[in-house]
C-alpha cells in the first residue's frame, strides 16, 4: 500500500481510484490510514463476506484473512486487470501503472500479459509480528 500511496497522483491521472480492503475493523483501519497517511480509503470486511465472495480467504493466518490481490475494475464493472499475490511476492506497481497508462487511451483493453512480480522484504516490524 505504501507503493500505491507513493504513485497515487499517477493513478488518479489515469482516472482510477484505489480502495484497499481487509478483515480489519473500522477502528483498526483508521489507525492504518493515520499511521501510513494514506490518500485513499480502506474498506472493512469484518464478516469476511467479500473475501469469501472473491475466493481470497487465506485460512492459514489469523483465523482467515485476505490473500493479497489487486483488481482493476472499469466503470462498466468488468475486471480488466488482476494480480493474485503471495505474502512475500507481489505485483510490481510499475506493471500496473503501465497498464493504466495504456488503458487510459484504450478503455476496452484488458491485461493479457503475465503480471510482473517481485519479492518484497518484510520490515522488521512485520517480521517481528510473524515471529
Amino acid at each position: 500500500m505504501a507503493e500505491v500511496k507513493k504513485h497515487y497522483d499517477d493513478i488518479i491521472k489515469y482516472k482510477t481510484r484505489a480502495y484497499a480492503i481487509s478483515v480489519d475493523s473500522p477502528k483498526q483501519s483508521r489507525a492504518v490510514v493515520s499511521e501510513m497517511m494514506l490518500p485513499f480509503d480502506l474498506l472493512c470486511d469484518v464478516d469476511k463476506k467479500v473475501i469469501q465472495l472473491y475466493d481470497l480467504v487465506n485460512p492459514f493466518e489469523h483465523g482467515g484473512i485476505a490473500r493479497p490481490a489487486i483488481f482493476i475494475i472499469n466503470p462498466g464493472g468488468k475486471i480488466c486487470y488482476r494480480s493474485i499475490d503471495g505474502t512475500a511476492r507481489r505485483v510490481d506497481l510499475t506493471h500496473i501503472l503501465n497498464f493504466l497508462k495504456i488503458h487510459y487511451d484504450n478503455p476496452d483493453l484488458s491485461n493479457k500479459e503475465p503480471v510482473d512480480k517481485k519479492w518484497i522484504i518484510p520490515s522488521w516490524e512485520a517480521t517481528r509480528q510473524i515471529i
Binding site: M1, A18, Y19, I21, S22, Q28, V32, A66, I70, F71
Partner: peptide, 13 residues
C-alpha cells in the same frame, strides 16, 4: 465513471 483499483491486503494485527 472512473476505474476502481481494489486492493485486498492482509490487514493490521
Amino acid at each position: 465513471t472512473h476505474n476502481i483499483m481494489l486492493i485486498f491486503y492482509r490487514g493490521h494485527w
